[in-house]
Design a protein around this nucleic acid. Structure first.
Lengths: 190, 190
DNA sequence: CGTCGATGAGACTGACATGTATCGTATGAG
DNA sequence: CTCATACGATACATGTCAGTCTCATCGACG
């Protein structure tokens, strides 16, 4: 009666992410150990390592899409409430900061988006996101002298900045969301 | 009479970068093939793969330091010529955009900065760079309501944005330097 | 109590990459 | 011409990891 094909994989994926975020080349043995599970069991859930990576990628895309659609963010596209756009982008960025920390491994793994199905989803989500940004441009929340798609890349770049700042310990983790949001609006807002 | 320990390694390092920028997990065999050289020969120049990666890291740091010191940029620290600061940062960013494309592999390889000697150099260069940014803050070229070290991370994040934009083909490569510079000053300038 | 299913542990193989050694050859200097 | 050096090619030993299989164990459930 489970909705998802294999519901018990969540714990494994979570453990895998914990390990892979620290060392993207970690072996199945390391991942299984971190999950407190035998290596064979890990293989029973994910036949190959690629399957596991793929599942992680799919999970990260679900999270991405969830954050993108949360709180009716996308319904704003085409409307003309500037404040609503601003608030939506603010919330979206903060959710993304969290997501980026959780799915760092998926974030810088081009291999994932090379996979046909996942690659399509990536493009689809990018397009949705860009639509939102373009809408924010039309409403006057974001500069309109920059391509929306570039703004999208800036957004991801700033997420990486946040991750780096955290990794280097240069900034208190709790300050990062604010820094990212402020810098984003300074960079591409108006 | 060669100045550097092994001057003939340049071609190999260049070829290795070309390959590793595309696939960071490329094997010595692939690298040797791309360099048009036997695998044994590659091993004669770099005993182990780590040695090669290390040499690449060292090279990238040289390049980084070179770009940082180019055109007397660092001599500006402590002076009070705002326009000079602005121009220096502009030039620095453009050099960095080029460097980031050439050394992408080194850029996102934490392994490199985990190496003791190189790690120290990274910290040293970061410190130098942050001093320059702090100086630019004092002169009023950059916002002073953000930590200089955060600005440094933003800088690197934007370089990644540029790389991503290029990789996705969303922006004409020749437009990227301008986008990065404009976005940087919009984000953290005043 | 007995059975079924999932698991953990371990052994095993095959593929692959690294590192080393050897051998024949070409090139270039003296 | 001779020799030294670097090179390409090849073979070999080693280690690691992925993927598969087997077997014993444990727990839930009838």
């Amino acid at each position: 009666m489970s909705v998802s094909p294999s519901a018990g994989d969540d714990r494994l994926i979570a453990a895998a992410l914990t390990v892979l975020n620290g060392d993207p080349t970690a072996s199945m043995a390391q991942i299984a150990a971190a999950a407190g599970v035998g290596r064979a069991t890990l293989h029973r859930h994910f036949a190959t390592r690629d399957d596991l990576v793929l599942a992680i990628g799919a999970r990260s895309l679900e999270r991405w899409e969830g954050s993108l659609r949360a709180e009716g963010t996308l319904e704003l596209v085409g409307t003309d409430d500037a404040d609503a756009h601003r608030a939506a982008l603010d919330g979206l960025l903060r959710r993304y900061v969290q997501d980026a920390g959780d799915f760092r491994f998926a974030m810088d793994n081009p291999e994932i988006e090379r996979h046909p199905a996942l690659g399509e989803t990536v493009l689809r989500l990018c397009a949705l996101e860009t639509e939102l940004l373009a809408s924010a441009q039309r409403v006057g929340v974001l500069r309109d002298d920059l391509p929306a798609v570039w703004i999208d890349h800036v957004l991801f770049g700033l997420l990486r900045s946040g991750l780096d700042a955290q990794r280097y310990g240069d900034v208190a983790p709790r300050d990062i969301p604010d820094l990212v949001v402020r810098t984003f609006f300074a960079a591409v807002g108006r």
